[in-house]
Simulated assay, not measured.
Amino acid sequence: MRPADEAELSEAIRTAAGPLSVRGGGTRGVFGPGAVLETGGLSGVRLYEPEALTLVCGAGTRLAEIEALLAGERQRLAFEVPDLRSVLGREGVSTIGGVAAANASGPRRVQAGACRDAMLGVRFVDGAGTVVKNGGRVMKNVTGYDLVKLMAGSAGVLGVLSEVSLKVQARPEAEATLLAEGLGDAAALAVLRRALGLPYDISGAACRAGAALIRVEGMAGSVRYRLGELQRMIPAPWQVVEGEASTALWRAVRDISDFADETGALWRLSVVPGEAEVVPAALRAAGIAHRALWDWGGGLLWLSCAEGHGATIRAALAGRGHATRLRGAETAPAYEPQAPEVVALQAGLKARFDPRGILNPGGLC
């Protein structure tokens, strides 16, 4: 099914006789069993006001179309959407509804926040076929429940997005990255934590193959000053990478392209930055070969290893964060097991928004 508008989407869900597997552009695969419900027909920019930094578009609008439109006004989506097709073995094209449903957020999250922080409003159809609207076109909107944040990252299990309103951002005049290679993971992560504690508005902090990467963006003079201060306050063998070369470095971090040609399991871990090495250390102690890439100053860990080590990963992570398996088959569940209180809350939300349990069964709720 591929509804052409919100009314058709509502009718398709209302009259569904069984489970529906909701799909945007197909870049992250299809959840669970059931008839495929594609949102690509719900496309088109409904409103774009560059001077107000506001964009409203159908959920099926292609991300590439949105980025091209914004680039024409020297603007961008602040949350730097990852493209994980190469590491997940997917094809398709990314849509803004899929981005919002996954809360897909890249390296700039340490400065600008996640996708959900840029979402001003949503329209969606719940599991009963009811059209729901929440939020608006400005940030100061505090009426009622914040369903905008609820829908961000809900992966289509509570409702199918039909329209998304977003705050956009002006493109900076300059970008540069401080790169220090050969530090080793522990030293590089310590450098990132130190840098993020300084008042220099860092927009990226990653550890890749034992190297520390720190990105600064803004007016050219400000970028030069902040780079100088960071180098002065954090001794390291720094190289300055500017312009497109800097952009390419962060594209590789954003898309975890280091893992593109690998097979086996791929894990996404949210951790306490001060304990970013706990899981890799446990894998080393167990003799389990792996590769790691840290983003968000150590708070996000991408981990590539052979299948079958989920129990080891989760045991090492216990009480420190949570892990999601994005690729690979094994007995460990893909999502982090939740506390009974959280399970009850999720079940309550599912019952309220999808009483028949037909939207993406087997997903987060």
Rank of each mutant, 00 (worst) to 15 (best):
R193E: 12
R193L: 03
A195G: 08
A195M: 02
L196M: 15
G197R: 12
L198Y: 04
L198W: 14
I202P: 10
S203H: 05
A205D: 01
A205Q: 08
A206L: 11
A211Y: 13
L213D: 12
L213Y: 15
G218I: 06
G218P: 07
M219Y: 14
M219T: 03
A220H: 05
A220G: 08
V223E: 11
R224Q: 11
Y225Q: 11
L227I: 04
L230K: 00
M233D: 11
P235S: 04
P235F: 00
P235L: 06
A236R: 01
P237A: 06
P237H: 07
W238K: 07
W238T: 02
E244S: 13
A245C: 06
S246M: 10
L249C: 13
W250T: 00
W250L: 03
A252V: 14
D255Q: 11
D255A: 01
F259N: 10
F259R: 06
D261N: 11
E262M: 12
T263D: 15
A265C: 12
R268S: 15
L269K: 02
V271W: 11
V272G: 01
V272C: 04
P273W: 13
P273S: 07
E275H: 15
E277Q: 15
E277M: 15
V278H: 11
A281P: 03
A281K: 13
A282P: 00
R284K: 13
R284S: 14
A285V: 13
A285F: 09
G287P: 01
I288G: 03
H290T: 03
L293F: 08
W294Y: 09
D295Y: 04
D295N: 08
G298W: 10
L301M: 05
L303C: 03
S304D: 02
S304P: 00
C305K: 01
C305M: 12
E307G: 00
H309D: 08
T312M: 07
R314S: 05
R314I: 04
R314W: 10
A315N: 09
L317I: 07
A318M: 07
G321A: 10
G321N: 09
H322K: 08
H322R: 02
A323V: 13
T324I: 09
R325M: 07
L326C: 07
R327E: 02
E330A: 03
E330R: 00
